Simulated assay, not measured.
Amino acid sequence: MGHGLITLLVLAGGLLAAGAARAVQPPTHAPPASPAAVRLFVPFMAGGEADDSARNFVQSATRVGGPGFEIVHLTAELGAAAGRAVRQAAPDGMSLLLARVGSVAILPALSPRTAAPLSDFTVLAVLDQAPLICAVRSSTPIGSMRELLAAIAAAPGQLRYSTSGAGSLQNLAVRYLLALSGLPGDAAKPVHFGQDSLATQALLNGDVDFSCNTARSIVPAVQSGALRGLMTTAQGRLRSLPQLRNAAELGLRDMQQLQGWSALLGPAGMPAGAVQRWRVLLDKVAADPEWQAGTEALNASARIQAVKDPTPYLRQQGQFYERLVTTLEARP
């Protein structure tokens, strides 16, 4: 881990007790950080993609001469608590947010009163980006995206798909896929499982018929032959699945807007010196072969150097999901 310090503080948003699904409201404030440690707030629970991205970044940042870190998971209010903690912190660069598409682009579109707007933050970098993959079990006769859409059209409301939640990237992706294909939003039924990995496992178990899930969750099952990939939202072909066609190749180019990503944000009003120090460190992280390898292991693409001006990109993503949520009438 180098000379950095990572203390994992897990403040989970939903616990199961005594076999009953009894929701427990998590704390919305984290304990004080250790002296001189940067607190990196993560809006989702440990073990998921956000956590993996945070750990990959922290390990590299400490390896290339960065400060010590504390990773703090604040999952209350669908992750809005993590954003609020950073928004209210001193703008000295010692409190940062590991932002995800769900927390700073989708959630503000679904629940503007809950999520902090992008203008409340200083955008430092887009760290990584990962596409979705739509897949079915290999044992099914469906062999292409065209065949899947035909099966949905032939039996409206009968096919089921798995997601990590009603307001998740996966759910919006399938609903948008249906809309682009001229099918109603209820042509297929969502089943929500709370986590990406559980959504993929449900597909493997035969509990659902298909899923458009994150590459990290889907790729190993496609490589093993258990699942059949039908389409990816990647901009090109995936190195891990070079035979898999992307959305643009299938006439669904706008689906390529739907990507998972991680970004590094600080409070609004960070002084130029603090921003510059972080960007110098981020350049070192971007050049770190171990960070690059770690990002690839997550079936993601390194984006620190590729997205030179990250603020317009995040703003565009926010506008896209605002339009998408409105078009799909997905706002609660």
Rank of each mutant, 00 (worst) to 15 (best):
P156Y: 00
E296P: 00
I152Y: 00
A188I: 03
W261Y: 14
L282E: 06
A23I: 11
G165T: 08
D196Q: 07
R245W: 02
A46C: 12
A155H: 13
A215E: 01
M1T: 08
S95N: 12
D92T: 15
T232I: 07
L227G: 06
R146N: 11
P242C: 13
L203M: 02
G13Y: 00
L172Y: 13
Q292K: 13
V222H: 07
G2R: 15
N205M: 14
P141H: 15
A17L: 12
G206P: 08
S197M: 15
A125Q: 10
A18V: 12
L252Q: 09
R84A: 11
K308F: 05
G185Q: 13
T311N: 04
S60Y: 15
H3I: 06
V174F: 01
D283T: 15
G273W: 13
S138T: 15
V285H: 13
A30L: 14
A199V: 00
P117F: 08
A37I: 09
A272R: 08
T327P: 00
S119G: 10
I71W: 05
R84V: 03
A109F: 03
A90W: 06
S144D: 00
A287Q: 12
G185D: 04
D209R: 07
A300S: 12
A135V: 09
Y161M: 06
Q129E: 12
L118F: 11
G266E: 08
E77G: 01
T163D: 04
V104Y: 11
D288F: 09
P267H: 07
N246W: 05
M270R: 08
S138H: 14
A150V: 05
A179W: 01
L180Y: 07
Y313P: 00
G185V: 10
S111W: 04
V219R: 04
W261K: 05
N213Y: 00
F41L: 14
G19L: 06
A80P: 00
P91W: 05
Q316N: 14
V219F: 02
G229L: 03
A293W: 10
A21G: 09
V24F: 07
A188V: 08
V174I: 14
P112C: 03
N299V: 11
L324R: 01
A130F: 10
V123E: 11
R160Q: 11
P312N: 08
G47T: 15
E77M: 09
R55N: 13
L324W: 03
L198G: 03
G65K: 12
V123W: 01
G260A: 05
T75K: 06
P26I: 12
A274L: 05
A82R: 09
G48W: 01
H192K: 04
D288M: 09
G157L: 01
Q319F: 09
Q259R: 13
A20I: 14
Q319H: 09
E249T: 11
R228N: 10
R137Y: 05
T75P: 04
